[in-house]
Amino acid sequence: MPARDISQAVGGTPLVGLPSMSPPGYSLYLKLEGHNPTGSVKDRVAAYLIAAAERAGQLHPGSRVLEPTSGNTGIALAAICAPKGYKLTCVLPENTSQERRMLLSLYGVDIVSSPAGEGSNGAVRLAREMAADDPDLYMPFQYGNPANPRAHYETTAPEILRDLPDVGALVAGLGTGGTLTGAGRRFKEHDPAIKVFAAEPEYGDQVYGLRNIDEGFVPPVLDTSVLDGRIKVDSVKALQATRDLAAAEGIFAGVSTGAALSVALRVCDPRRLAEGSKVVVVSPDGGFKYLSTGAYAPGDVADIAAGLSQTLWA
């Protein structure tokens, strides 16, 4: 049966085994969220954010929507807002990939740039200032909106549990905390023994250019009580795993997939995860939006990662 329109084609993504990369005694699986309509897991979130706002009567044709994003959420929101006649503005850190900016432009999105040195925190700060100055703007605010984790609680996690009811661990990247909080909560309800691990991106110094510690930001939607561990991954490890994934399994993914995968490989250790465990890794997006960063170009991984470490890849 055909989908009525593109918004009905969100989710139902493949869960695929990684037989070549699974460590002895463990089975790794990758949830390919790049198979969503705009190519990322954020299609699920955007659909839930907009539906929740419409139900609450906060949107009507001609409404203006504002969202801080490092890119994927903006692209996903754009694909929903454009046909509905909502005018979208995205606040995007300067150091996001060219592809993300091009795609937003294609959808007619107004882009406001926030300083590279403030990372995503700067985009959040600037968007909040803009929203405070203009009460007619509607800001879904993925970092604080319960519809974000609910998308994963109601769609991502049930899909995985349907395909793999005896899953033993979940690994996902930490951005807004939506995937980990929503899917993690569902998994713990299914079986409290399931372990949930966060892969936290570690960037180069320039991305942490805060003036003081109080400019740090912990997304309100993140519920760390569902986490069993949080492991940071630098650009070298993330990129190496991303490139290994292409070579070993034929899967072309974005750099944050490699970050989560490298955490999965680390926790496949009898001291923290029973042998025989099945481990699901969430791949937030495919690799196409990172081609311009040189992430997949020939050359030394450490050299390429050094350049990449100043770009927001999650």
């Binding site: 995503s120 970092y143 807004t176 912990v218 940071k232």
Partner: peptide, 27 residues
């Protein structure tokens, strides 16, 4: 993340590396 180890009382060993990072978001 030491919050999932022993917090401020996390035991350390010779040769360990401790990294301090400000909290930042993504998405």
């Amino acid at each position: 993340d030491v919050r999932f180890l022993g917090g401020i009382q996390t035991p350390l060993r010779d040769g360990d590396t401790v990294s301090i990072l400000p909290a930042v978001a993504g998405g």
